[in-house]
Design a protein around this nucleic acid. Sequence first.
DNA 1: ACCTCCCGCCATTGG
DNA 2: CCAATGGCGGGAGGT
Length: 487
Amino acid sequence: MTHNTLLNVFGGAPPHADPWTPTANLRMLISAKVLFRPLRMREQWRMSRWMAREEGERKPSRKQKSLGLLCQKFLALYPDYPTSDTISISLDEVSTSLGVERRRIYDIVNVLESLMIVGRVAKNQYVWYGRRRLGSTLAELQGIGRQQRYHLHMEQAAEGGHREGIQTHADTAAASTRKDKSLRIMSQKFVMLFLVSRTQTVTLDVAAKILIEESQDPASHSKYKTKVRRLYDIANVLTSLGLIKKVHVREERGRKPAFKWIGPADFHSRHAAIALPEAIALPGDRKQKLARHASFNVVPTSVASQRRVNSAPSSPRREVTGKESGQTAHITTGCHFSQMTRPHSPLSPPGLNSLNFLLSAGQTTGGLTLPAGTLPYVLVPSSTLSPYPLMANRGDANLNFNMSTMMSPACFVFNGVALSLNCVVSGPHSLVSPPQTPQTPKEAAAGGGSKAFFQTPGTLGTATTTPVARRRGSAQRRLDIGQPLTN
DNA sequence: ACCTCCCGCCATTGG
DNA sequence: CCAATGGCGGGAGGT
């Protein structure tokens, strides 16, 4: 059974072949919704109960409606390891298909998104990544968790310790006006706790305390109960993902509800490509300056040498240049500009914090297809860029390349600053079509050599690189992400 | 009686 | 302005 099949069942026909609503009454519920749209949900619910009773049917029982169960149904609709990132999810269809209120889908999707099992693409539209990125996501969360010293937080919270004790790195998260104590964020933090814990066990109690403690919103400091409720929700989804399981921890005062990590523990081996040397840590001060206008230059090197490049001062280096500041930093594997679409995700703190151009060989790609709205991957067909068949960012759904910004003259905006991101690839293999596009003055000033760019023909859904005529020699080619497009 | 946590109201957001 | 999101906590089911 292919994705297509699933998708067809999913998107196409009316919801009657729905495996999750075996009983007629649910179906009726659904049609009732359509007919009586103006009715309040509560009444609809009562109505469905009534109908069920009338038909002498099994009442659902609260348990059978748990988020966890619902999540399992959701997961069952898609492959764990899809071969491409082209499976799209429509919340409408899912909620109809699973026969639940839309609100519930948001709960699930939010925690799935926090683990990059799905990615938000647009309104009512997500992409399914499955577990393909799970390893790297977990690794990243673990890294952040350590960096944030979450293990210390845990010890502290465990003994009902004081508050505000530990320095959570310069949290420059100023003006975080956002109501982002969201499920997404909570979920990521919750997971971090497991990944950082020696025993890989986390009590809801401790988790809740930490979450409250971190919440910079003083108003939420007294909402322990609410936090716990949310944690249960998250835990249910994580459980259905097979990442954690419920347990109890012994304590002098009896047992406390807790969860234990039973998911993958070795994130490193898998997906070697993604595990390549990454992030260059630019010295603090430079970050800002570089962020004003980052330009990433990639100089040809044999693929082989790339693997060890991180330590050896091998051939021509890839480098990052802050155009306006005139500063240059050398990097190893490449870069990835990370910024989030969604505010304050622990996964990618705002800022130019890491750059990853994955230049590993052997990646399979055709043209590239981008989910409308984001650019999680920048894939360059190996046929046109043989030494560098794949350029990808971290698979970070938060990466802030979205088509609309790409199409604006401003290129793309980062922290309110318009930027252009250039990846210059030189050598005989790098080929991309030169733009027939007039460039902004600024652009012109910045560049040298012919420009190539990602076209986004027609729809916002695709970007392609087109091979350019014969290229030879050491001519430099540049690949600009964020060029204004023609039209 | 305490642990879970579903349900849906309604404030926010985003388009 | 309206639809899509999703914070939030009352109160009911489960044990």
